[in-house]
Simulated scan of single mutants.
Amino acid sequence: MISKLCNKIFQDAINDYHVHNNIDQPISNPYRISSLEHLLYMKCWIDTVQWHMEDVVRNPGIDPVEGLQWKRRIDASNQERTDVVEYIDSYFLEEYKNISPKAEARINSESPAWVIDRLSILALKVYHMTEETQRSDASEEHIRNCTYKLNILLNQRTDLSGSLDELIADIENGTKYMKVYKQMKMYNDPNLNPILYNTK
């Protein structure tokens, strides 16, 4: 099942990142370039790095200049994340290009890669909420509240994993078909963001 592969690779990527726990630690992707596994590992690594950048930028005492630098890094990371999601969808489009949808086939509201994107973020939430349940310096109430939230996240991951597997099965048997829309983000494009093209 595709969800089992995703969740395993996401856990591996998160664990690998936390060996050094350093935002600038270079990625060491163990999978063959252009393989689905390579894309999944890259996707979760980007998410993991960005998770920690988001923590840093929320420091209320951060110098505004430094904060702006982090915000720009986060913007660049968001664009990279979107690009990798679209690469994953391209992989699935190629994988299922020879499947003829049935006459009654329907499109899904979300493409496989965007479901996978949500699974990657969920893996990070599970990892860090688990950490919160294991803090020796936290109150019993904090541990109890975080344990409650962790169980919800785990249940959510189970449900989302099942939905992803069903979607892939539906595409494979022709009852659903893929139609991918590029995100067409405008704020990073100097030709589409008026603040950028009016300051040329």
Rank of each mutant, 00 (worst) to 15 (best):
G67P: 04
E54L: 15
I46L: 13
D63Q: 00
P30E: 06
W70P: 00
H52V: 00
W51Q: 13
R72M: 07
P26F: 03
K43T: 13
L68S: 00
N29R: 15
D63E: 00
K43E: 05
H38M: 03
Y41K: 03
C44G: 13
S34K: 14
N59V: 06
W45Q: 08
L39N: 11
P30W: 11
M42C: 02
E66T: 01
R32A: 08
R58L: 08
V56L: 11
E54V: 11
Y41H: 05
T48E: 12
G67I: 02
W70N: 02
V65N: 01
W70D: 11
W70V: 02
H52G: 04
L39D: 08
D63H: 04
S34I: 00
N29F: 10
I33P: 13
P26A: 00
H52K: 15
V56Y: 14
C44H: 08
I46T: 13
G61P: 03
Q50L: 07
Y41D: 07
S35T: 13
K43Q: 11
Q50I: 10
T48R: 07
P60T: 04
W45S: 03
I62H: 01
S35A: 07
W51A: 04
P64I: 02
V56S: 12
V56F: 06
E66Q: 09
I46Y: 15
K43M: 12
I27G: 13
I27R: 15
R58T: 07
G67C: 02
L40G: 00
P64W: 14
V49E: 10
P60F: 09
Y31S: 02
L36N: 05
I46N: 13
L39R: 09
L40R: 06
D55S: 05
L36F: 05
E66R: 01
P64N: 10
R58Y: 10
W45G: 00
R32E: 14
E37I: 02
Y31W: 08
S34M: 04
E54Y: 11
N29A: 01
S28E: 09
Q50S: 12
D63K: 00
I46A: 03
I33E: 09
I62E: 09
L39Q: 02
S35P: 09
G61I: 06
P64F: 09
L68K: 11
L68T: 02
W45F: 10
L40V: 02
M42I: 10
C44N: 13
Y41F: 11
D47A: 15
S34V: 01
L36D: 13
